[in-house]
Design a protein around this nucleic acid. Structure first.
Lengths: 207, 207
DNA sequence: AGGAAAAGCGAGCGAATGCTCGCATTATAC
DNA sequence: GTATAATGCGAGCATTCGCTCGCTTTTCCT
């Protein structure tokens, strides 16, 4: 059927120019989302802001949804980067030290780009991207659970799956709500208090 | 400028017929949201499902957003009903009994209409309705905080505002995630476990 | 019964949006 | 230099959607 094209696909084709185009498009999408909201983020406008034509846009992103998904992925990857390194750093620490670090990281992760985070949380209809977000959630659960397994001796008898679920949900919610409540809750003093309290709750619960 | 219209507004005008129309519209909106998702919920379609004309729709709801807001309000009111009565029932109970009841109610509240809850949480861009949702959140915080104040002697020294924030966020998150994770997490056994664990965490934290 | 106000109707307007397609420009290979 | 593939362009199509407006039907009051 599909015979091999007589001319091999170009080698480093997807580079210099096109890579820049893709980046510009994702960046423009994020900018518009933050500055004007989801409703204003039409494909035409995104292309305009990116300094790219709509046609080119559709060469790299099959739909508007794909563009938004790319922004979400980029943001999630930033967050997951923090979380992953924190969890490896913490692997050999006792629960109380580890919990404190993880809580702190959770808040910091949500602070990476609060405005974008807010838009993604509040304005983007999660349609199809759900799978991606769920994947991130599952990864976090798995990582935390693995850590907890390695520290079982410090803990009381407890169903690890349930404990992980409760702890991760709680920490994530505190971080999330803190950031969404606006800058007034993000003073250094307040953050420290919240880290203290959340850590205390989680550690007290686990052992 | 605007002189009083020579004919006074009718007395019990907004009744029998029109009340039914309004109800049909809100109900139809909720049905479409649950069964077909937010994207399919056009005003034309809502009117069609409600067995009402678009014209009539716009006599009672100035915009599509208003319709969705009505659905959200109705749902939130159901939830707040449960929460309010639970909190009055609990007013004279010690913290451990109270916490258990509140955690249970939180999960039950989210279970009222899980599919609708999911759509509202995942698909509806919160634009403008934010104020309403925030109002509900604040009410819950206030009610819980008032309860905790009355039980301060059972608790350790602690900033009540922070404690309330952490506890409410956590309980809400566990309930929310439990329901969103689908029916498999809603077995009676699982719910009981989750209530036990969350209660334990919160109570241990408060005292 | 008669009339007036309330309620309801639904074709269709205007605007916006996602996306296509035929063509132009630029980079690469020989 | 020339052929070929990659990249970029943007006017405009097709569709959808929120919403209006002129009109009809129902309800209520006297």
């Amino acid at each position: 059927m599909a015979r091999t094209p007589p001319t091999k696909p170009r080698k480093n084709a997807l580079q210099a120019r096109s890579r820049a185009t893709v980046d510009a498009l994702v960046e423009a999408t994020a900018r518009i989302l933050v500055r004007e909201g989801f409703e204003k983020a039409s494909t035409n406008r995104i292309a305009e802001i990116a300094g790219v034509s709509v046609g080119s846009l559709y060469q790299y992103f099959p739909s508007k949804e794909a563009l938004v998904a790319a922004v979400i992925d980029r943001h999630n990857e930033e967050i997951m980067g923090l979380v992953r390194t924190a969890l490896t750093e913490v692997a050999d620490l006792p629960i109380d030290k580890a919990a404190r670090k993880l809580v702190r990281v959770a808040i910091e992760a949500h602070r990476i780009d609060p405005k974008l985070h807010r838009v993604l949380a509040e304005q983007i209809p999660r349609t199809g991207q759900l799978k991606d977000v769920e994947a991130f959630n599952r990864e976090v659960q798995t990582l935390v659970r693995t850590y907890l397994e390695s520290r079982r001796k410090e803990m009381r008898k407890i169903d690890l799956a349930v404990a992980t679920f409760v702890c991760v949900s709680s920490i994530e919610a505190v971080a999330h709500n803190t950031v969404l409540n606006g800058p007034e809750m993000l003073s250094e003093k307040m953050v420290r208090t919240l880290v203290d309290e959340t850590t205390r709750m989680v550690v007290g619960y686990l052992r």
